[in-house]
Computed example of a mutant assay.
Amino acid sequence: MLPLLTLLVLASTPLESPPEPPPRPPPPECLSSQGRTVCGYQCKANGSGARCAQTPYGVCQVLAGNVICWDPPRVVIHHPPDTAARPECKESRGKVACGYNCRVFNGEVACNSTPYGVCTTHFAKLVCWDPPESVIHQYGAETPAPRCLNASETVNCGYDCKATRTEVQCVSTPDGVCRLDNDRITCFDPPSLLHCDHSYPPPPK
């Protein structure tokens, strides 16, 4: 038998309650249009049909006469930003793009696939770049912001960018390095050794 003091200590020790599961996402919906029914999230319809996002994190909009739906990649769902960034779709001259940080320039439209990317314009070009998934798995909401650098008519985006008069190179990860010696650029990215295990995704914003 256990001593009386041990029994009293055990009796007075509060039991930890199990962690509460994350809130369940909203249920999907169904929408009928033109004799066809579609199901998913944020469903939209117009005169030509209906579409839905496949996850509660996606977006649907009616643009250029069509229903456009887009879902973020899983790495973004499991590693959302601290900001209130949400995906969107934009249209320019009949062209449509969806994602984050969407930009319209000179009749072109482009977006980032993740909220951690960057878009820039240079010499009538619209360029968007996103960190690889391994970087977002490693840093999550604290993923360092990449940047874009140009030289003459050339532009490149990433980390630790270096440029000569005619060339720009960047690394793809914040842990990489580029070095400029005698107008020659050498860049190196270490391999990712991180394996990310996920449980429940966070609730959609």
Rank of each mutant, 00 (worst) to 15 (best):
E16S: 12
Y116V: 01
P28V: 08
K95N: 15
K162D: 02
N182H: 11
S92C: 11
S33T: 13
T13F: 15
P131M: 00
N182F: 08
C102G: 04
C119V: 03
A84W: 07
Q61N: 11
S12P: 05
P201K: 12
D71P: 00
E16L: 14
P131W: 00
A50N: 14
L193D: 11
A163L: 05
P203N: 13
V171W: 05
N150R: 08
F105D: 06
A85S: 12
V59F: 06
P204L: 13
P26A: 10
N112Q: 08
M1H: 15
V109D: 03
G158L: 03
A151T: 07
P203Y: 15
C102H: 01
T37N: 06
V76G: 01
V177D: 15
Y57I: 03
V75I: 14
Y100D: 02
P26Y: 04
D71K: 01
C119T: 02
A64I: 00
P132N: 05
V76K: 00
D71N: 07
I185C: 06
V104W: 03
V109F: 03
P3F: 03
Y57K: 02
Y159Q: 05
R179G: 10
L5W: 08
R36V: 11
Y159A: 03
G158S: 05
R93F: 11
L63V: 00
Q169G: 01
V59H: 10
P27N: 10
G176Y: 12
S113I: 01
P81F: 01
L10C: 14
S113C: 00
E91S: 15
L63D: 07
I185L: 05
K125W: 09
V75H: 15
R86W: 05
C157S: 02
I68K: 06
A50G: 14
A50L: 13
A85M: 09
T13Q: 14
V155W: 01
V75L: 07
H78M: 12
K44D: 03
P204S: 14
H122P: 11
S134T: 12
I185E: 06
T6P: 00
P27Y: 07
R147C: 04
S92H: 12
D82F: 11
C170D: 03
N106Q: 10
